[in-house]
């Protein structure tokens, strides 16, 4: 049996569809009501959780594999996993965004950067040899520049329409994001055949 944790919401929907295409029976998952743990006849056991919790479950070996966005992996301090497959779904990117004048403005003080992804923001500005102040916001990060709490934001950009609607624009792309299949290193060793089979089947769906 493979134990799987999936990030709730959009990733869950897309991954389930891919698993179905790969030949797994997902009916029990589609028909779930409020259960948090589902076991299918194919020998898959699913739990569903928030992205960072998927990583936590995997770290503790509660699940063998997890489906999670690269954004979560980049911002999480846990690093000891295998990243077996890029599912090429949920594609978007990390970017610095601000009002257009940000690019040419001469800052006298430290720039203030609002982000939900504080580690990503920190690493990015470090790589630029820039010292900035990072302010954590949990959502609607675009508010940062709008209410003048920050000079710019570091956030996920998919279509850019929220930015545009608020007069903000992408200043620089930081890195690409998509959904990844990750595995706990020890559990991988004990369930190698089943996990590799699942990876191969999913890989074919990705390539189609």
């Amino acid at each position: 049996m493979i134990k799987i944790a999936i990030t709730k919401g959009r990733i869950e929907k897309q991954v389930c569809k891919m698993l179905e295409k790969a030949g797994y029976d997902l009916e029990p998952v589609y028909n779930k009501k409020r259960e948090l743990m589902i076991t299918t006849d194919d020998g898959l056991q699913f739990i569903f959780g928030k992205a960072n919790d998927v990583v936590t479950f995997l770290e503790h070996g509660i699940v063998d594999i997890g489906f999670v966005g690269k954004d979560t992996l980049d911002d999480n301090d846990f690093d000891d996993y295998y990243e077996l497959l890029d599912l090429q779904i949920g594609k978007c990117f990390f970017a610095v965004a601000a009002y257009p004048e940000y690019a040419t403005k001469n800052f006298k003080n430290r720039k203030r950067i609002a982000s939900k992804y504080t580690n990503v923001a920190k690493k990015y500005f470090e790589s630029k040899k820039e010292d900035v102040e990072i302010i954590k916001l949990e959502g609607s990060v675009e508010l940062g520049p709008i209410v003048n709490l920050s000079d710019a934001i570091v956030d996920i950009v998919e279509t850019g329409s929220t930015l545009k609607a608020n007069g903000l624009e992408v200043i620089e792309k930081i890195s690409e994001i998509s959904t990844r299949l990750i595995a706990n290193k020890v559990n991988f060793k004990y369930n190698k055949t089943e996990i590799i089979d699942l990876v191969n089947r999913l890989e074919q769906v990705v390539e189609e």
């Binding site: 295998y82 990243e83 077996l84 497959l85 890029d86 595995a183 890989e203």
Partner: peptide
């Protein structure tokens, strides 16, 4: 390559 093998990323 070391990074790729560390994560066993087949895609990469």
């Amino acid at each position: 390559l070391q990074e790729i093998l560390k994560y066993r990323s087949v895609s990469q």
